[in-house]
Design a protein around this nucleic acid. Structure first.
Length: 478
RNA sequence: GCCCCCAUCGUCUAGCGGCCUAGGAUUUCGCCCUUUCAAGGCGGCGGCACGGGUUCGAAUCCCGUUGGGGGCACCA
């Protein structure tokens, strides 16, 4: 345990937070918690044009819902405020000035057009397309000349001309040959900081000890580290975790449909199930542990056991896990969660009945949204039979449903057991087994060929509605 | 084009030189249970990308090939 561990999650809230990003954030958070350290939420909005206020709120909402909390962030404040890069311009200006005076950074007067032109040329000649270092060693006179031309300078970092390496906690030792990592822009010519500057400065100033992020940022690590060192700080340890892929094995993106945390919530997934599933995407406790509570995850999470190869997101396994968690929720809790989806669908349940219906449906739902179709018949008299139900009703023996109605009308008491016996009597009298005998009744009462167990369902529905629906179907059956 | 990362059942993974005729989970298939649908139980199919090494011995180490991904922006 190391209570000095400080990690952060720094999403750029331009779009929605998808499960891949969050999986990475989850690892970062788990590492902080595992070490009894602190977790920071920071908004990476150096390119302010792409960020909306709703997006920032969305990020906060999604993380909260999942069960991730932070000690410092834009909403809760903290000793290193502000936590939005768009509000830290002065800080970046100050740090970039230090780099400038030390000669670790320099003004670059090349225009985007010139850079693009040279980039194309390099590519055509088979050389690296990056920055060629044109303004690296400008004399004072040359600078003045550019200034007189009215050129605005971007500020570039002077990358040491030597081999670069990072010791990554997941990838191991990674090296880049001298010249491979070119001088990059720290501050745009309009004075706004780039991601590369902001991240280095913030991680340093906020005392971040471990940077856990997607491995698409692996080449940013040596740049981040060199900037921090040039500023006199100690770079954090880096852990670059693989990206999460879609079911087709390609990186998760819009193309894969709704992959935002918000959409999983709307689809009826439990946050505890999603967290458990996500934690197992690229990490494992051992060879058999599948279910871990939040506390257990915190207790056993270790960057050492994070896999270095990308994982594909498998909804089916998530669904299976979701069902597992649903089954283990207590009835009040589950009912409260289903209520949201029922009312969303326009079904307004009697709360007491809803609660008592939970034992009947909990092992039948992969998603909470399924509670709507499973339980609708309990809360509405509109039970127009679906196609299969219609057939079941039509194929019922002559007078069968009326007989069932008659018999159920006399059931005493109106209990699951008594109803069960009555249903059997009706079926037996008609020479039918349970399957054949109960299905028409199920169809008539629930409007579907599939429903929760019949006796329990009828008990909850009540005698009156049950009998009425049977009679109505009987007339329709002719 | 150059650089970097990755490679075990369809999917998530265990495996860090002998315990592996490769284990678990999910998916799928079959059986059992059963009032429908599920859940549950039992069982089956299914994998070390390929080629070279190193070693008494390789899924495990090294090299190469192939494949996938990422980077080379005044995006993040």
């Amino acid at each position: 345990m190391n209570d000095h561990v400080r990690t952060r999650f720094a999403p750029a809230p331009s779009g929605s937070l998808h499960v891949g990003n969050v999986r990475t954030g989850l690892f970062s958070w788990l590492w902080a918690r595992h070490n009894g350290g602190a977790f920071i939420l920071r908004v990476e909005d150096t390119d302010a044009s792409r960020v909306t206020e709703e997006a920032v709120h969305g990020v906060i909402e999604s993380l909260r819902w999942l069960g991730i909390e932070w000690e410092e962030g834009p909403d809760v404040g903290g000793p290193h405020q502000p936590y939005r890069q768009s509000q830290r311009s002065l800080v970046y200006r100050e740090q970039v000035d230090r780099l400038l005076t030390r000669g670790d950074a320099y003004p670059c007067y090349c225009t985007p057009e010139e850079l693009e032109e040279r980039r194309q040329l390099s590519l055509a000649q088979g050389r690296a397309p990056g920055y060629d270092g044109r303004c690296r060693n400008l004399t004072a006179e040359e600078r003045e000349a550019f200034e007189r031309q009215g050129r605005a300078a971007a500020i570039r970092f002077r990358m040491p001309d030597e081999e670069q390496s990072v010791h990554d906690l997941v990838k191991g030792e990674v090296r880049w040959a001298p010249g491979q990592l070119q001088d990059f822009v720290l501050m745009r010519s309009d004075g706004t900081p780039t991601f590369l500057l902001a991240v280095a400065v913030d991680d340093m100033l906020m005392g971040v000890t471990h940077v856990v992020r997607g491995d698409d940022l692996l080449t940013a690590a040596p740049r981040n580290a060199r900037v921090i060192e040039a500023l006199g700080g100690t770079p954090p340890a880096y852990a670059h975790v693989p990206q999460v892929n879609g079911p087709d094995g390609r990186p998760l993106s819009k193309r894969h449909g709704s992959t935002s945390i918000e959409s999983f919530r709307e689809q009826g997934f439990l946050p505890e199930a999603l967290m458990n599933y996500l934690a197992l995407l690229g990490w494992s406790k051992d060879e058999r542990t599948t279910f871990l509570t939040k506390q257990e995850l915190i207790g056993s999470f270790d960057l050492d056991r994070v896999s270095s190869n990308p994982a594909a997101f498998d909804v089916q396994k998530l669904e299976w896990m979701n069902n597992h968690y649903i089954q283990r929720l207590d009835d009040d809790d589950l009912a409260a969660r289903c209520l949201h989806f029922l009312s969303e669908a326009g079904v307004l349940p009697d709360l007491s009945v809803l609660r008592r219906a939970m034992p009947l449906v909990k092992e039948r739902m992969k998603r909470l949204t399924e509670s709507v179709e499973l339980l609708r018949f309990l809360f509405t008299d509109d039970v127009t039979p679906n196609e299969q139900a219609g057939e079941l009703i039509a194929r019922a023996p002559e007078g069968y449903l009326s007989t069932a109605a008659d018999r159920l009308e006399r059931v005493e008491p109106w209990s699951e057991e008594a109803i069960h016996r009555a249903l059997d009597e009706v079926a037996t009298a008609a020479g039918l087994n349970r399957t054949k005998g109960w299905q028409p009744i199920r169809a008539a009462v629930t409007g579907s060929n599939v429903s929760p167990p019949l006796p329990g369902s009828l008990e909850l529905l009540g005698r009156e509605a049950t009998v009425a629906r049977l009679r109505k179907a009987a007339t329709r059956a002719g």
